[in-house]
Design a protein around this nucleic acid. Structure first.
Lengths: 217, 217
DNA sequence: TTGGTTGGAATGAATATTCATTCCAGGTTT
DNA sequence: AAACCTGGAATGAATATTCATTCCAACCAA
């Protein structure tokens, strides 16, 4: 359409980002809905308002398009989670902060969220997880944040002494589940629902003590 | 290969089930790994040791093949969950029974489990969930079982008074998460890990009382 | 033989990718 | 300034590949 007109200023420098962004956005939207194999490149081109060939000026092929987007979205997600994260806060508060971050990101970026889900439920995802586990090259990933948190919590006898994977599953699993339902329009995630879920997450992994909450540094 | 040889006995009666089964099994295996659009019919035929055309003798098209399999696997799953289910047991015990059933089914039928996951994360799945929610035609579904359980538990003040969807998310979500990791070979789900997860599920949704467990009918 | 079943080549539609061409902002020449 | 180049970006028709489905010759049981 009239894309050209209002970008004369940008085009001087590396305006090349514009089309690229359009393509990326369209891909996220479509793949989040129809999945990788369910969205032809032609459809991406149309949704992006771009010629089919243009896509190949910015990305080697469909595969690397998706791979690049995933890396980008993943960074985006992690930085949301770690935004305003203060490692000096009590364990419980930090746990709430990180988990609330998942809710927030999913609600604010439904397409990106579903895109990541699609990705994880594909042949790509499996290999990626494997790599993540076996070589911890990624420094400040979400899982690592939770991992450190859990170790410390266990040392302080605040968090159950059960396998790390179980702790992660009971933190991330329910939230992903709820966000998916929310995106599907099956439920509405208001503040109180989110709070009750976060409390449930915490109750699942915390050590059962009689007095509970109040006595934490 | 030599599939023909050892099936002469069956072919006397309604052997038509045999090829059908081979096709179904192959489809489950492949789709669980590569997804619907990622597995061509030709690949299914090869994996099943069957001509491509044969598939169309048993199923109208690829769509109805998948739809039929889903219905079948779903029934299978539900009957596993409800096997030996005794509605007269205490709430807590019934909850453990149902949740343990999810673990069991996933561990014993990894391909079927991943197949269902693929299905739910596809355009099919979304519509299906909707129907399930809005018209409760399905009588003894897993969700309904949990639903009834939760209502009763809430009435008895055993289970938190939070939205049903949240309760379900905190029961099913972590288990699905762990089973997926287990199938991917990232963790091993031994009995003690499963137990700790089930306890965590229960802790997430139960009302926090001082004495806790022991005082239940 | 006859009726039905099977395998897999054949078909056409859909798809990813390529490439010859067009377009245009910015620079150069007059 | 006006007319004219120029190189890179954009395009979409053309090509190559993959896929679901169809079709039929060979096969098998009765």
């Amino acid at each position: 359409m009239n894309i050209h007109s209002n970008q004369k200023t940008l085009s001087a420098l590396g305006n090349s980002g514009s089309k690229r962004e359009q393509i990326i956005d369209a891909t996220i939207r479509l793949i989040s809905e129809y999945g990788f194999h369910g969205t032809p490149v032609s459809m991406i081109a149309q949704e992006a308002g771009v010629g089919a060939g243009t896509i190949y000026r910015y990305f080697k092929d469909k595969d690397s398009l998706v791979l690049e987007i995933f890396a980008q979205v993943n960074r985006d997600f992690q930085s949301t989670m770690l935004d305003q994260y203060d490692a000096r806060q009590p364990i419980r508060d930090r746990f709430f902060h990180l988990c609330r971050g998942i809710f927030q990101y999913g609600i604010e970026n439904p397409h990106k969220f579903k895109f990541m889900e699609q990705f994880y439920n594909s042949p790509y995802g499996t290999t990626l997880r494997r790599e993540k586990l076996f070589c911890n090259c990624d420094d400040s990933s979400q899982e690592l944040s939770l991992e450190q948190l859990f170790s410390k919590g266990q040392a302080q006898q605040l968090i159950k002494d059960i396998p790390l994977a179980t702790l992660i599953a009971h933190s991330v699993g329910p939230i992903v589940f709820l966000v998916k339902d929310s995106i599907a329009g099956l439920i509405h995630l208001d503040e109180s629902t989110i709070d009750s879920s976060l409390t449930a997450c915490w109750d699942a992994i915390r050590v059962r003590s009689q007095q509970s909450d109040i006595l934490e540094p």
